[in-house]
Amino acid sequence: MIDHIGITVSDFDASKAFYDKAMAPLGASLLHMVPAEYTGGSKVGGYGRDRPVFWLHEATPTGPGRHYAFTARSRAEVDAFYAAAIAAGGRDNGAPGPRPHYHPDYYGAFVLDPDGNNVEAVCHTAE
Rank of each mutant, 00 (worst) to 15 (best):
Y38C: 07
S15H: 13
F12S: 00
Y82P: 08
H67T: 09
E120H: 03
L112M: 13
G48N: 01
T39Q: 01
A22C: 08
V34H: 08
M23P: 10
G40P: 09
S29T: 14
V34C: 04
V78G: 09
H4L: 11
K43M: 09
G63I: 06
R99L: 09
A14I: 02
V34F: 10
R99G: 10
A87T: 03
A76D: 15
L31Y: 01
G41L: 07
Y82N: 05
G40H: 10
G6P: 00
Y107F: 14
F12V: 00
A24S: 13
E58V: 00
G108Y: 05
D105T: 14
H124V: 04
A28I: 01
D79Q: 05
G63R: 06
K16T: 06
A83P: 13
A22H: 07
H101L: 11
V53N: 06
P96I: 02
G48K: 00
G27T: 08
L26A: 11
D79W: 09
A85C: 07
G6R: 07
G89N: 06
G97A: 10
A24Y: 01
H101M: 12
A121K: 10
S29L: 05
A69G: 14
H4W: 15
P98L: 12
P64T: 03
G27H: 05
K16M: 06
I7S: 06
F70Q: 00
F54M: 11
G90W: 13
E127H: 14
Y82A: 03
A87C: 01
D50Q: 15
G27V: 08
A80Y: 10
N117C: 05
D79M: 03
V44Y: 13
L30Q: 05
G65F: 05
F70V: 01
S29C: 10
D113F: 11
G116F: 03
H101P: 06
L56N: 07
P25Y: 06
G41F: 03
P52R: 12
L26I: 13
F18H: 02
G40F: 10
V111G: 12
G65S: 02
A17H: 05
H103F: 02
A126Q: 13
G6T: 11
G89W: 09
A109V: 03
D13F: 03
G45I: 01
D105E: 11
K16D: 07
A69V: 06
T39R: 03
V78H: 06
P98W: 13
L30F: 01
G46H: 14
G45C: 00
H57S: 12
E77I: 08
L30G: 02
M23W: 11
V9F: 01
A28P: 00
A95D: 05
G108R: 04
P114T: 05
A22D: 06
I7C: 08
S10I: 07
F81C: 00
H32F: 15
G63M: 10
E127R: 13
V119F: 00
L26K: 13
H101K: 12
I86E: 00
M1S: 14
G94V: 09
G40M: 09
A76T: 14
H57D: 07
